[in-house]
C-alpha cells in the first residue's frame, strides 16, 4: 500500500507531534509495516458480530451529586510549567 508523505504530515498535525522533516520517510516505512500487520483483520469474517469496547461490557457508574474532592489548586499548580495568579500560562492565543 504505502502511506504518503502528505498523510504523515496530516497525522502529525492531528496528533500535535512535530516530526523532523528528515525522518518522515523512516516514520512512513515503519507505520506501513504496522498497517500491514493490522490489515490482517480484513480477512476475518465478522458478519453479525457485535463490537466489544470493554471486557466487562461495563456501563458508566453514577454517583451522588455531592462534593467529594478538596480544592488542591496550589498543589496542582506547583508542578505546572508556568502559572500566574492561579492561572496556567500558555503562549498568547489572540493578538
Amino acid at each position: 500500500m504505502g502511506i504518503e508523505r502528505s498523510e504523515i504530515e496530516k497525522l502529525a498535525t492531528l496528533s500535535r507531534i512535530a516530526i523532523d522533516e528528515g525522518t518522515i520517510s523512516d516514520v512512513a516505512r515503519r507505520l506501513d509495516s504496522v498497517l500491514q500487520l493490522v490489515d490482517q483483520l480484513q480477512a476475518a469474517d465478522t458478519t453479525g458480530i457485535d463490537t466489544m469496547a470493554h471486557p466487562m461490557q461495563a456501563i458508566q457508574r453514577l454517583r451522588d451529586d455531592r462534593v467529594s474532592e478538596l480544592n488542591q489548586r496550589d498543589a496542582l499548580q506547583a508542578i505546572a510549567p508556568a502559572v500566574e495568579d492561579g492561572l496556567f500560562l500558555v503562549p498568547k492565543v489572540i493578538e
Binding site: V38, T46, M52
Partner: peptide, 15 residues
C-alpha cells in the same frame, strides 16, 4: 469502521 470497528468485532470473536 475499517480499523477500529473491525478490531472491536475481532475482539468479540477472541472473547
Amino acid at each position: 469502521d475499517a480499523y477500529y470497528g473491525k478490531a472491536q468485532q475481532v475482539r468479540q470473536l477472541i472473547q
